[in-house]
């Protein structure tokens, strides 16, 4: 009897893998184009599914001219100057600033998780509270945050911090606990102090995994940031999307969504590359 071939053991060639990985993209784009063309034939004023041409025009407008509420440049300017005063650039900068502030605030969370994992008293003090906090839906705190911190930047950053830090703390805590006890004992026998063990043995060892954890949480960071911007903001990518929704400006909303996806993709790629470069010993499992 011939041995049965198990699909689970299949080894697709590189070409097959590349082709398969693009099929859904091609299908999605094709379906959209077909729908857009059909709706445009029915109603040339349709704004729900803009054509590629409409989106290019909308996006180039967003990337080369200011928002309607901005002061328009009085003199003709170069493309770079126009881009640097454009709606897209200003929104990206505003969102990016909040995003990086939030990422910077995750660093204390990593340190807290590290100390919780290594020092039993710190763990006992914080663990239950962080576990409880982790179960709170951050978006449900949004009204409280706006009341407590106002509708300025602080409330939006606090939303991200509250939404993401418990996950980062618990991830770091688990990573620190997973470092073999033999290595901690070994470090002590080589003359290390508690802080040497924490920062020169454990943190150094878990750092690439912590970066990975932050990388995987980038989407969550953006989710909370968008929620905050959509509800209470006067600039930012999510603010613009929410504003354009009122005017059915799908020709700009769709490119904005793709722009955010591209930025996140690039951030993810950069973090991966930096992680690989800084930690050549690290193998992702």
């Amino acid at each position: 009897m011939a041995a049965r071939f198990h699909l689970i053991n299949a080894r697709p060639s590189r070409t097959t893998t590349v082709v398969l990985s693009w099929v859904l993209f091609a299908a999605g784009i094709g379906l959209y184009l077909y729908t857009a063309a059909a709706r445009q034939r029915e109603n040339p004023e349709d704004r729900v599914t803009p054509t590629i041409g409409q989106m290019v025009r909308g996006m180039s407008g967003a990337a080369t001219s200011g928002a309607a509420d901005d002061d328009a440049p009085t003199q003709p300017a170069s493309l770079v100057q126009r881009f640097s005063t454009s709606m897209l650039w200003k929104d990206t900068i505003a969102t990016g600033r909040r995003f990086f502030c939030s990422l910077a605030l995750l660093f204390p969370a990593v340190l807290l998780g590290l100390h919780m994992g290594l020092f039993p008293h710190v763990g006992a003090f914080f663990l239950r509270f962080v576990l409880f906090f982790d179960k709170i839906i951050a978006l449900s705190l949004l009204p409280i945050l706006f009341i407590a911190f106002g509708i300025d930047e602080l409330s939006k950053i606090m939303l991200i911090v509250i939404g993401v830090t418990p996950t980062i703390i618990l991830d770091t805590f688990n990573l620190a606990r997973a470092v073999p006890g033999e290595q901690v004992v070994k470090a002590f026998t080589l003359g290390a102090s508690d802080f040497d063990v924490a920062y020169r043995v454990v943190l150094k060892q878990i750092w690439p995994r912590v970066l990975n954890s932050i990388r995987l949480n980038l989407k969550a960071v953006m989710l909370f940031l968008f929620a905050g911007e959509m509800i209470a903001s006067t600039d930012g990518l999510a603010y613009r999307i929410a504003l354009l929704r009122r005017h059915m400006g799908m020709d700009v909303i769709i490119p904005y969504v793709l722009w955010v996806a591209l930025l996140l993709f690039l951030a993810d790629l950069t973090m991966r590359a930096v992680n690989r470069k800084l930690h050549p010993w690290f193998r992702e499992s």
Partner: peptide
């Protein structure tokens, strides 16, 4: 101390592992 497993720090090269004791102390 030399345990059966996990005796070296994976993030350090051979030389850095050997000099670790001198450096931290």
């Amino acid at each position: 101390y030399v345990p059966q497993k996990y005796s070296l720090f994976p993030d350090r090269t051979v030389l850095e592992n050997i000099t670790f004791g001198g450096e931290v102390s």
